[in-house]
Design a protein around this nucleic acid. Structure first.
Lengths: 321, 321
DNA sequence: CAAATTTATGCAATCGCTTGCAAAAGATTT
DNA sequence: AAATCTTTTGCAAGCGATTGCATAAATTTG
């Protein structure tokens, strides 16, 4: 591989000038700069990342750590990934992927964290680089999230508006902010409107939801709408309802959350609260890069930044029009 | 951060000894080594990856490049990812993720390539590091693949064996080896057994398959089995069949390929040819690491290595028992 | 027990690049 | 035209580790 020195010699300048032509183009005479760039292309010169990182203390790598033991069938992360990856690339940053198994491998300038649980915070605290979360947290870390509270109210509102008179919130059995926010949104909605309602919590698997419906079928009268905290639960609920002979959407409405299964399944046209995951990924990457570029100073400690990107209801065939 | 020098001083040795204690433990006196390790822990010393990479010319990074414009709802890649990631971590290698947009960002010791198309080979050829593919190729690159040819024969065989008398192969409309191998397997099976059969090719989306079934419903008599080249197509076909009033599996059988949707959907218990994706990911990582460790020499050029991991049929409710 | 051999440790150079300061060249002012 | 300021370029040092060779210590051998 050609080095900075090779380029310098060939262009009859010192390597410093070449270095500047790359990193601070405005500091070098335009014509000179062009001829240097030309030589660089000629030699197919690529700066050595390791050498750069060594002296500049910038790896130009961002690590995405997925905590939830990488649920390999969950498209959610893939969609975040796409957004993050695209944004980082625009800024010439590389994306490194880590899981619960690989905390320690490799270096980076900052972390994007997702699928995190309470038990993981101890690990997060000992990180020395900037951190951005997916999902609200009370520990003061910057985060990107969707409007969970309001989104559920919207879903519930839509269900009531289309004539369902009995609501069931089907939550995920975890005590994380994203879940409790949704539950609170639902609870407040019920209080405010006085609609008949109940809440259940299930493990986030289709068949669990299907089984639940089978076993508790009698408890769900006609005109019930299920407001679910994930598309998986929604799909499972729908299957259960259909298996019991319930008609969707005429007698039973089902609303999902996430919007990750839309393209996956043809006949299942699920009404769902769609998260703009690509945009959320991009936002997280941008936020992190900003934090990397402007590190906190002692005099001005870090103020938590929150970016909320609203989900919107995607209305389809599992609810009335 | 503590450096090698810091550790050396504290341990009263030269930094060389510390370096050896890390990289060639057998070369340093056991007791000395232990005390060095102790100091390292005390100072929370982590070797600087950049400095290491600079001199050793090893980044300890492997790049996974996904070519197919990252289809964000495709769990296939996530499952590969899990396998690759786990294997790499065991060897203290980091995984970097790249897409069609980000060919050039970041350095690595080798590439794992997936979702590749003919047009991408020009790019691949100019890579200087070892490469491992997912999927057969005739360009001489090492690869990991499943037994596409035989797998389809197994699927078809099972369909015939369970009494379906008419077979339809539903392929993906691309001219890549994985597809042509499957088609050839099907074609040969038909020739050998003389069973009634036909082949179609569709874009790999559920609704395309569903629409196709609707429009060509008359062409599919009872007792037809659809052998599909992906789970998506299978799901789409099944929906189409059901919408037309066909009974699954009594009158129509459906077999998928990949096995990525199994946990996703409860009532859709699809019979599918399950690829061992996690194992394939691990195998690819292992193969690549071996290639990195033992680079080709001039005297002994590279011989293509092929690793085939067999898929097996996972029998469920979309075919007869 | 001295010589030869093996095993452990240290020294110096180097990887490719960027930072801080200094010098040279060019432009502007008085 | 001398003095000052600004822009452009170069020099030297060093980031934190590893490689090759040299030296010191420990062990074996005749």
């Amino acid at each position: 591989m050609a080095t900075l020195n090779d380029v310098a010699k060939r262009a009859n300048v010192s390597k410093m000038t070449v270095s500047r032509a790359i990193n601070h183009p405005e500091q070098v005479r335009p014509e000179l700069r062009d001829s240097i760039l030309h030589v660089m292309a000629e030699l197919n010169y690529q700066p050595n990342a390791a050498a750069r990182a060594l002296v500049s203390r910038r790896t130009r790598v961002v690590k995405l750590t997925i905590f939830e033991d990488m649920d390999t069938t969950e498209p959610y992360y893939m969609m975040l990934l796409a957004g993050i990856s695209n944004e980082l690339n625009q800024h010439q940053y590389a994306l490194q992927l880590a899981t619960s198994n690989s905390y320690e491998v490799g270096e980076c300038d900052g972390y994007i964290l997702t699928g995190i649980r309470q038990k993981n915070y101890a690990w997060v605290e000992q990180l020395r680089q900037p951190v951005v979360f997916f999902g609200r947290n009370q520990q003061g870390y910057d985060y990107v999230d969707t409007n969970n509270y309001q989104a559920i109210q919207d879903s519930a509102g839509y269900a009531v508006q289309t004539g369902y008179t009995n609501l069931v919130f089907v939550g995920i059995a975890v005590d994380e902010p994203f879940e409790t926010d949704r539950e609170q949104g639902f609870r407040d909605f019920v209080t405010q409107t006085g609609v008949g309602a109940r809440m259940i919590r299930l493990a986030n698997h289709c068949h669990v939801a299907t089984d639940y419906v089978r076993q508790h079928w009698r408890e769900f009268p006609r005109n019930t709408a299920f407001i679910c905290a994930s598309d998986r639960l929604a799909i499972g609920i729908e299957d259960g309802v259909i298996l019991q002979g319930g008609r969707v959407p005429d007698d039973y409405g089902i609303i999902g959350f996430d919007g990750v299964l839309l393209n996956q399944i043809a006949s299942k046209r699920l009404t769902t609260m769609q998260q703009p995951l690509e945009a959320m990924g991009r936002a997280a990457a941008r936020l992190l890069l900003a934090n990397i570029a402007h590190p906190d100073t002692e005099s001005q400690p870090h103020a938590q930044e929150k970016i909320i990107i609203n989900s919107r209801l995607s209305i389809s065939e599992s609810t009335r029009a």
